[in-house]
């Protein structure tokens, strides 16, 4: 039974006569896409995969001070089959590039990629024979994070941007 408005401890707050607080079944109207995207965007599980300096900041993000769990992304998965997000954290060498491509291919759809740091975005300071100038030559990238290495806050912000992007996506069909 709903509380009567007159007996509420906070007279300013209008309490509905029936519904929400009573335990009776209520309902919310939305589209299927929005419901699915809401779920996906709040449980983006990154792959436990680090390359270079940025990987240390990536670990810091998961630790106590920065606490990525607040954004639903703290569950770092060791297997690409269970991961939704590949954070390319560091420089990609010629020898590593086929490996990264294979790891990306092993992830199941839907999947997203963050290029963390200058090296993953564009080669950074390593414009030489050994380093691939940006991971976007191997795999498609959703969000680029500048910085060398980016601060943990920057990585958190990139994950928030990715969440915004996910919420705007269509769910039917696969991505190219």
């Amino acid at each position: 039974m709903g509380l009567d408005a007159g007996t509420s401890p906070h007279p300013d707050v209008a309490i509905p006569q029936t519904g929400a607080k009573t335990g009776e079944a209520g309902f919310v109207i939305t589209t299927l896409e929005e419901a699915v995207n809401w779920g996906r965007s709040n449980s983006v599980w990154p792959l436990l995969f680090g390359l270079a300096c940025c990987a240390i900041e990536q670990i810091s993000v998961g630790m106590a001070r920065f606490d990525l769990a607040r954004f639903g992304s703290e569950v770092f998965r060791a297997s690409p089959r269970q991961a939704d997000l590949l954070i390319v954290s560091g420089r990609v060498s010629n020898k590593m590039s086929p490996v990264i491509r294979r790891v990306y291919d092993q992830m199941s759809d839907p999947k997203w990629v963050i290029a963390m740091g200058d090296c993953a975005s564009c080669g950074g300071p390593f414009n030489n024979y050994a380093i691939v100038q940006g991971v976007d030559k191997i795999i498609p990238v959703d969000v680029y994070v500048p910085g060398c290495p980016p601060r943990p806050e920057a990585l958190i912000y990139s994950i928030m941007m990715l969440q915004r992007k996910i919420r705007a996506e269509g769910t039917l069909g696969t991505r190219e």
Partner: peptide, 8 residues
């Protein structure tokens, strides 16, 4: 796999 050509 992380050879970055530091010396060069």
């Amino acid at each position: 796999y992380l050879h970055s050509g530091f010396e060069k």
